[in-house]
Amino acid sequence: MVQGWGWLWLAPVILAAALFFGTAVGETRIPLSVVLDVLSVKAGLSQAEVGAVDAGVIWHYRLSRAVVAACGGASLALSGLILQALLRNPLAEPYLLGISAGASTGAVAVSVAGIGAGMLSMSAGAFAGALTAFVLVAALARAAGGGTGTRGAGVIILAGIAGSQMFNALTALIIARSASAEQARGIMFWLLGNLSGVRWPDTWLALPMAGLGLGVALWHARALDAFTFGADSAASLGIGLRRTQAVLIGTAALVTAIMVSIAGAIGFVGLVVPHAMRILVGPRHVRLVPATALAGAVFLVVSDVVSRITIPGQVLPIGVITALVGAPAFALIMIRGRHR
Rank of each mutant, 00 (worst) to 15 (best):
G26E: 03
V13I: 15
V25M: 04
D37S: 14
V34K: 13
E27T: 15
I30L: 10
A16P: 09
F21M: 11
R29I: 13
V25C: 01
A17L: 15
L32H: 09
A16L: 13
A11L: 11
L8F: 08
G4D: 05
V13R: 01
V34N: 07
L39T: 12
A18K: 05
T23E: 04
L15K: 05
I30S: 03
L19A: 01
V13K: 02
T28M: 11
L36R: 14
G6D: 02
T23K: 06
L39D: 10
L36D: 03
L36H: 09
I14Q: 00
L19F: 01
R29C: 00
D37H: 12
E27V: 15
K42A: 05
T28P: 00
A24L: 06
W9N: 02
S40I: 03
W5H: 13
S40M: 12
E27W: 11
A17T: 12
R29D: 15
G22S: 01
F21L: 14
G26C: 04
L39R: 11
L19V: 05
A17I: 12
G26M: 04
V13C: 10
V25H: 03
D37M: 08
L32C: 09
E27Q: 15
W7G: 02
E27R: 15
V35D: 09
L39H: 10
I14C: 13
L8T: 11
A17P: 11
V38S: 08
L15I: 04
L10N: 01
P31Y: 07
W5Y: 13
A11Q: 12
G6P: 07
V34Q: 13
W9V: 13
A17C: 14
A17D: 06
P31Q: 08
V38I: 10
W9H: 10
V35Q: 07
V35I: 13
V13Q: 02
P31N: 07
S33L: 14
K42E: 12
L19R: 04
S40P: 03
L36I: 15
S40R: 15
L10F: 12
A16D: 04
L32V: 15
K42M: 03
R29P: 06
L10A: 14
P31V: 09
I30V: 12
A11S: 14
L15H: 06
G4W: 05
V38K: 09
A18D: 07
V13W: 14
L10K: 01
L32D: 03
G6L: 11
V41F: 03
I14T: 07
G6Q: 10
L15G: 06
V13Y: 06
G4Y: 05
D37L: 02
S33M: 14
S33G: 12
L15W: 08
R29H: 14
W7Q: 04
T28R: 13
F20G: 06
K42H: 06
A17F: 12
P31I: 06
A11P: 11
L39I: 13
A16I: 07
F20N: 05
R29E: 15
A16F: 08
A16E: 03
V38M: 08
V38A: 05
G22E: 01
V35C: 11
P31A: 08
V13T: 09
A24T: 08
G4N: 08
I30C: 04
